[in-house]
Amino acid sequence: MDFSVLTDQFASLTFDGIALGFIYVLIALGYTMVYGVLRLINFANSEVFMLGSFATILVATKLFNHTIESDPLTGFKLVYTMTAMLVGAMIVSGVASVIIEIVAYRRLRSRTSNRLTSLISAIGVSIVLAEAVRMATSSAPMGSPRLLDKTILATVWGADIRVDTLLVIVFAIILLIVLDLFVNKSRLGMGIRAVSMDYDTSRLMGINLNKIISTTFLIGGLGTGAASFFYITVYEMTRFSIGFELGLAAFTAAVLGGIGNIRGAFAGGIALGLIEMYASAVLGTQWRSITAFVILILVLLFKPNGIFGESLQQARV
């Protein structure tokens, strides 16, 4: 136990914890959206993240011919390249997510109402994707060129506010607001909420279920793709096993906030980021996951549906 590090480095740890938390939030969206609609834990979402992270790097290295030793870009070229990387990651993750839905879940859904088969199928897809990438990359990590220089914009109470972490926070907030508006205000969003509330009744009301479900997977995938882009921008490295590491954390965040609830994912992600950072500092990094899970269990003891409760229902979203 070393509480002095907390007082000594508090602002720094808090800022880093929030930035990490926002990456968790974006991945957690993939779990939460699908769970809200299908009551299914889409375990393959972690590999959607992994694919997105590779896509981000490949756009930079193959499309724009940057190497790992390239110098940081500036001005219009920087914005242009980064946008392309973000869009590339989102497209790859979104498409992968929709394909996974069609291949692994849709047929099972029409044939059986047993959710357990879908769960096994989800784990299967996850293993297939991770192993395929492992073989394709010979288990080696892939580094990203540093295109956005990590300029320190300001120092607040000893914490460095860096441009890359600030970018994550700002963009994640924008994405969350857009998503919240979409689910609450748009026609498709209304459909998603209807399916989430009552599967059978919404089908009777003439809602095209498969379309709604595909849209949900697409949105979850796009959010996860954005998360992978931000992850690479900050940490600049990925490997085949990254999905497991980040996916588990994001899933924990989703459960902590209340799975199926977008605002819950937000609260859970930030909370988890901070808990991990403080626990690592005070107890040692080896206690990070243990602390996070102990807190998760305690929260679930008192609020079994997470901080914000389950489901994507109208009032809560």
Partner: peptide, 21 residues
């Protein structure tokens, strides 16, 4: 010292905070 499990830690900020302290 600090222990960060192999392949399980993306963010070393907490460890670095301790090093600075």
């Amino acid at each position: 010292g600090d222990s960060a499990a192999k392949g399980a830690v993306s963010d070393f900020s907490a460890t670095i905070a301790k090093i600075k302290k």
